[in-house]
Amino acid sequence: MSADVTSAAAEFARRQQSPLQRVQHQLHGKPWLSPLFLLLVAFIAFFIATPTFLTANSMGILFQQTAVVAALAVGQTLVILTAGIDLSVGAIMVLSMMVTATLAKDGGMPAILALFIGVALATVAGFLNGLLVTRINLPPFIVTLGTLSIFTAIALLYSGGESIQADHLPRLLNFLGEGFAIGDFRLTWGIVVVILLYVVMGFVLSQTAWGRYVYAVGDDAESARLSGVPSKRMLLAVYTVAGLIYGIAGWILIGRAGAATPNAAPDANLASITAVVIGGTSLFGGRGRLIGTLIGALIVQTFAFGLSQLGVDQQWRVLATGILVVVAVAIDQWIRKVKA
């Protein structure tokens, strides 16, 4: 009897909601819906403005350009889900890339060993971020702002500020830039690796205890700790795994750029955070899905690519990205105010 009363009360409350409140509830449960709608609108708008936008060749280029940001955004999502933020993503990626490329340059070291060292270094860099956050209790923003400069300087000093072109690197390091064509549509192996990253980490977050702990820590770290969740160890693990993913992103970047350069991806930090926030992951932690992050990464690159095809100046593209971030955070704040 009580269950029937509760169900009836819930149905009555639902009927009392305005259409806007119903949308708010839907977005609270499925935060990736709003970025998906925005992506569809962007595709339609750019197709109307420039019919070449939706050609197979253009879509292939768009997905290739999205690969690096999308890979970095996986690690950034893990960090933001715990109510943190990582400003060192691009620096860790570039450091890993330069160490890998320098070690393997002109056959100096076996490619597989150089790649392992580069990715391991990125993992250690992520671990260091986590150590400073969990053991010294420094704010993630301050920690990663500091390590951004540290890792950037180390990459420049180690490489001497010089780029290494693809013809000086073994095929393994350039492999993710190769691919296959489906008609005029071309996919690279880097895109395939990014898809695998999303599938694996999406499964981990949604189907494992580790993933549930990540959400619990982001929602309320102290409550999670009192419930038996090892909050500090979870945070350390999140930053470490994020570092590993940034190292893989460095490998993808070598293939995408056809070179290893210490000045690569200068906007990687902003782009990764933008992708995560636009994708519906809350900056306050505890809410979001990787599918939203992937959609967010596509939105970021779609706007950049579409505006570029329209001949819009870089300054206006940066302005568009900034507006997207502000709107996304405002929507997130609105969604968080949903009433049960």
Rank of each mutant, 00 (worst) to 15 (best):
M1P: 14
D4R: 15
A9L: 07
A10V: 08
R15N: 05
Q16H: 12
V23D: 10
Q24H: 13
H28T: 08
H28Q: 08
P31H: 09
P35G: 02
L40V: 12
F43A: 09
A45L: 15
A49Q: 10
T50K: 15
N57E: 13
N57D: 14
M59K: 07
G60W: 04
F63C: 00
Q64P: 07
V74K: 07
Q76G: 09
Q76E: 15
Q76F: 01
L81G: 12
T82H: 05
G90W: 13
V94H: 14
V99L: 10
T100V: 05
A114H: 14
I117N: 11
A120K: 11
V124L: 15
F127V: 00
F127S: 13
L132D: 10
L145I: 05
T147S: 02
F151N: 01
T152L: 11
S159A: 08
G160N: 02
E162I: 11
D167N: 14
L169R: 09
F180E: 04
D184S: 13
L187M: 06
T188K: 09
W189K: 09
V192R: 06
L196T: 07
V200R: 08
V204N: 08
A209L: 12
A209T: 13
R212E: 06
D219E: 12
E222K: 10
E222H: 15
E222Q: 14
A224E: 01
R225L: 03
P230I: 00
S231G: 07
G258R: 11
A265C: 08
A265M: 13
P266S: 08
N269I: 08
L270Q: 09
S272M: 00
G279N: 06
S282E: 08
F284V: 03
R287G: 02
R287C: 00
T293V: 06
T293G: 02
T293Y: 00
L307G: 01
L310A: 05
Q314Y: 09
Q315T: 15
W316M: 02
R317M: 07
L319P: 04
G322W: 07
I323F: 04
V325E: 11
I331N: 12
R336P: 05
